[in-house]
């Protein structure tokens, strides 16, 4: 199979890049995603706060996804969902896998819009056991908002980025006890806007200069040892759930080792991590147009 432009990842950036490339005259575009629906992580972001720059009002994640999907639907972009891209080769081809089989797809240009993955607790030198009840913030968001799961009652959040803030609010709103956000730096990592919306109103403490030194519990997590890095010693805090919001890493594994060929473009969070979806979208639109030329 052949296509002029392959875009991997049908999240906000991939959709925006595809729509912009179509509008710029490219008439042969394949947009692939492993999920069963377009929008990437937007559908799990039930909170408001998206689209101020693009739409002049605040949308929820699903509303935002709907807006951009509508634009996409007016194009002739071929959207292939439930499809895993297994490999990308230097001869400008990719292997796609779905339930009907493998497809070798030859392309002229490729936009990688594969977003990021979350840093996991495994990458930190945290001591102790490895029990159940530890989730990344994005994973928790997906499990709660898309699968209706109840993760726990006594929640500790490691990290104070935006995703940590959003999840702190969500847990607080659903009647869970958010014990604290734990931050090793002297200042929170997320945007001030999110701090004022998500943390302040719920009086959730942020413990600065503090980190999780040890995890306790043999089956399910029962608590952690917090270490106060400014010389304040250690304390044990019971909890039944630990949420890690340790930051995002651009997901570029598919093109690792391919160098920087002129046919390869990056859009959205796999290019660089954006604070706002609007900025990921406007960047992706620019890249979509460039790739269409």
């Amino acid at each position: 199979m052949k296509t002029e432009l392959l875009i991997i990842g049908a999240g906000a950036a991939g959709i925006a890049a595809a729509t912009a490339a179509w509008d710029a005259g490219c008439r042969d575009i394949v947009l692939a995603d492993r999920r069963e629906r377009p929008g990437g992580i937007l559908p799990q972001c039930l909170h408001e706060g998206f689209g101020h720059a693009q739409y002049g009002r605040e949308l929820t994640g699903p509303e935002y996804a709907q807006q951009i999907a509508q634009k996409l639907n007016q194009t002739g972009v071929r959207l292939v969902l439930g499809t895993e891209v297994l490999a990308v080769y230097g001869n400008k081809s990719a292997v796609l896998s779905d339930r009907s089989g493998l497809t070798q797809l030859h392309f002229e240009r490729l936009i990688l819009a594969s977003g990021c993955r979350e840093k996991s607790i495994g990458s930190l030198p945290v001591v102790g056991t490895r029990p159940a009840g530890i989730f990344t913030a994005g994973q928790a968001q997906e499990m709660i908002n898309l699968h209706g799961q109840d993760l726990g009652k006594e929640i500790l959040i490691l990290g104070s980025g935006d995703l940590g803030f959003i999840m702190a609010r969500q847990f607080a709103q659903s009647g869970k006890h958010v014990i604290a956000l734990v931050e090793k730096e002297a200042h929170y990592g997320g945007m001030a806007r999110n701090y004022h919306r998500c943390v302040e109103p719920y009086k959730i403490p942020i413990l600065y200069h503090t980190t999780v030194a040890e995890i306790h519990g043999s089956g399910r997590i029962t608590g952690v040892t917090l270490r106060h890095l400014d010389g304040g010693g250690e304390e044990e805090i019971p909890c039944d759930t630990l949420i890690t919001a340790l930051g995002l890493l651009p997901e570029r594994d598919l093109v690792r080792g391919l160098g920087e060929p002129e046919w390869l473009f990056f859009a959205g969070n796999c290019h660089r991590v954006h604070d706002l979806v609007d900025s990921a979208v406007s960047e992706a639109e620019r890249i979509g147009r460039a790739a269409a030329e």
């Binding site: 029990p131 159940a132 009840g133 109840d150 043999s218 089956g219 399910r220 997590i221 759930t241």
Partner: peptide, 20 residues
Amino acid sequence: SEEEVTKDGKGSEILGGGRD
């Protein structure tokens, strides 16, 4: 049920804060 799924045996339930 999904609530009964464990990481590595009873007491390590993934959902519901554990069911210890």
